[in-house]
Simulated assay, not measured.
Amino acid sequence: MRRRVWLLLLLGCMALSAMAHESRPAYLELNETAAGRYDVLWRTPVLSGMRLPIALRFAEGVRTVVDPVESQLNDSLIERRGIDAGPAGLGGQRIEFVGLQASITDVLVRVSRLDGSLTTTLVHPAQPWIEIAATPGMFSVAGAFLVHGIQHILGGFDHLLFVFGLLLLVGNGWMLVKTITAFTLAHSITLALAALGAVRLPGPPVEATIALSILLLAVEIARKNRGDVSFTIQWPWVVAFCFGLLHGFGFAGALAQIGLPQRDLPLALFTFNVGVEIGQLMFVAAVLCLRALLLRCRLPRSALLYARPVAAYGLGTLAAFWFFERVSSFWT
């Protein structure tokens, strides 16, 4: 009976994780072109062919001087327009995102002023509005991308499941430290190279290959459970480094969806990567604490015996589903 409960819990987690990766943020960019005049770019995600029902609302007195023009992309809808906020500009005024409170997405807001100052802020559903600061804060860009890095890794279940697979394969101790460090170093390298434009890879094949990396890791976990020996089992940190290079391109794809500000790029890139590492360490700590708690509960030996194989096959099944789903999207 207890084994069935654990299996049901695992299947429930797999179902939730399959739905949780579609939380791309909306994006609002305001570029001041003259005193009180702004070019507006408003991008909202499109999920399953449906535009997220989030509407942009400016304060009273803000006039549209250039009619909106819309363009459709595969994953988003972009609207461009020109507005006039008066001589004082948008400083001190509130911009609302109607419908955001009923969604699970965020809005990244970037404001560029005539004096060259830039502010970048992340707006959450709990507070579906932003008040444009008259004087930009020094840490707004860093804070926004730090938070988004944490949210991205905690919402990116494919990356987390790969880390979970490393924990199943290695266990704990010094080898785990080396393996997680190698994975972190590798994806930091390719994230920086891709964000800076030095290396470019198409997104769909990268996402499919990330799913394949999880599947291959699940196979190695199953081999270790049988007592077999392989290069991955003996040198997990080398394999983690190689696959980490691939996962870094996945993180870069997330930054591209946000619309990484070019003038803020070094700071935004650094703080986003720090946020990813914080979220990853939070996940590792949570898994290790849960493992320690389960060991203290003195579960039956049979439950502990079957826990690792069930987790490995569950991991491989979900990764295989993701792989074929992402490969099929090449032609849709």
Rank of each mutant, 00 (worst) to 15 (best):
V98K: 03
L299P: 09
G314A: 04
D264L: 02
R57N: 13
L318E: 07
T44N: 11
E96S: 12
E79G: 07
G137K: 11
G316C: 10
L245I: 12
R63L: 13
H159G: 07
V65I: 15
A311D: 04
G61H: 06
S17K: 05
L295T: 09
L167C: 05
R81A: 05
P205M: 14
D264M: 02
S329P: 06
A20D: 13
M19W: 13
Q262R: 13
A18W: 13
V123F: 08
D158A: 15
L260G: 01
G92M: 09
M19I: 11
Q262S: 12
A312T: 04
W6N: 00
I258M: 14
R57A: 15
C242P: 01
L41S: 12
L191M: 10
G89P: 09
G82P: 01
N31Q: 15
A303D: 15
A254P: 04
N74A: 15
G314M: 04
V287S: 05
I78H: 15
V147A: 14
D228P: 00
A286M: 10
C289K: 04
L255V: 11
T184Q: 09
F272P: 06
I132Y: 01
Q257A: 04
V206I: 15
P125D: 04
L305P: 00
G165P: 05
V219E: 06
Q72T: 07
G91Q: 00
H247R: 04
A20G: 10
A256Q: 12
D75W: 07
A142K: 04
R326P: 06
A254E: 03
F164Y: 06
G279Y: 04
H152S: 13
A186I: 13
G149P: 13
V170Q: 09
L216Q: 01
A35V: 14
F283Q: 03
M175W: 12
F324M: 04
L122E: 05
V238T: 06
